[in-house]
Design a protein around this nucleic acid. Structure first.
Lengths: 146, 146
DNA sequence: ATTAATTAAGTTGAGTACAATTTAATTATA
DNA sequence: TATAATTAAATTGTACTCAACTTAATTAAT
């Protein structure tokens, strides 16, 4: 019964997930360079473009990232004038983020980013829709575990 | 026409890819700790368990990783006695890797890793198969681009 | 045969990820 | 109410990822 099939790279589910994730982030890079954003900074801006006021805690929940990752990311965005940071008056432990006018302005131009990214995909767009549905479904099964 | 739908986090394809990838790697962690392997070290071992002799270059091609990532990873595996490293006699630029007896031994126990990982997935296993097929399909469209 | 171009690894620096710890503020409890 | 427990951020340390650069070896071109 020495069956090593499950140890073959091609049979891993996580590996194409991990490889494709990095690949797509690399595709974003030239598009984001124009805005001086990294991918992590970009998805932070996506959240702020939807909700201009949000706590760091809430942001982390949406992005599945903790303060160890987000603190330095937000610090950078503040430095670039896209975000303001202040302590909540009601609870001094909480850091609140607020989109600045400059950050709001960037949104207008940034609509080109997903457009240009998707235009780079050859093949059936339906494949991407299916993929996204699959990913969301599987991700939801772990959402509240850890 | 100020349509910001494509800038919503929930409409991103890359984000669930990125989030799920990190989530699954976190699920591997407790399983890999037992073997003193990180995820990146683990997928390197997967390759070596399939092909006991391989150049660093070839390894990088399979994992979509460059020497900047792999050099230190391999150095760790050598230190742990799982892999041997030597320069090719035919071409001194090339570093060849060889699985050691200890590395081969680990394979026997490591079959439990994918088993235990998959057992943690609730929901229909068919969903995972579909996901993997989707990922492979999309990944193959970028394989030779960069 | 020399020189130029290419190739494979390795190194460096910036930016994540994440576990673990620390600090400060708030809430719960004896 | 004083103390304990909890919570949110920040910090620290380890490891990965990748672009850019360096070094050494090989191959191509003059």
């Amino acid at each position: 019964m020495s069956d090593f099939e499950n140890l073959k790279l091609e049979n891993q589910i996580c590996f194409p997930l991990y490889a494709l994730s990095r690949k797509v982030i690399q595709l974003y890079k030239p598009l984001l360079d124009k805005y001086n954003l990294t991918y992590t900074q970009y998805i932070t801006m996506l959240v702020l473009w939807e909700k201009e006021n949000i706590s760091l805690k809430e942001l982390g929940k949406k992005l599945y990232l903790d303060s160890g990752t987000l603190s330095p990311v937000v610090k950078k965005l503040v430095k670039q004038g896209l975000v303001e940071k202040y302590r909540s008056q009601a609870d001094e432990r909480i850091v609140e983020l607020r989109l600045t006018a400059g950050g709001r302005e960037m949104k207008e131009d940034a609509v080109e980013i997903p457009e240009k990214l998707y235009s780079q995909f050859e093949g059936d767009p339906e494949t991407l829709v299916k993929l996204k549905n699959n990913l969301d479904q599987v991700l939801s099964q772990f959402k509240d575990e850890s």
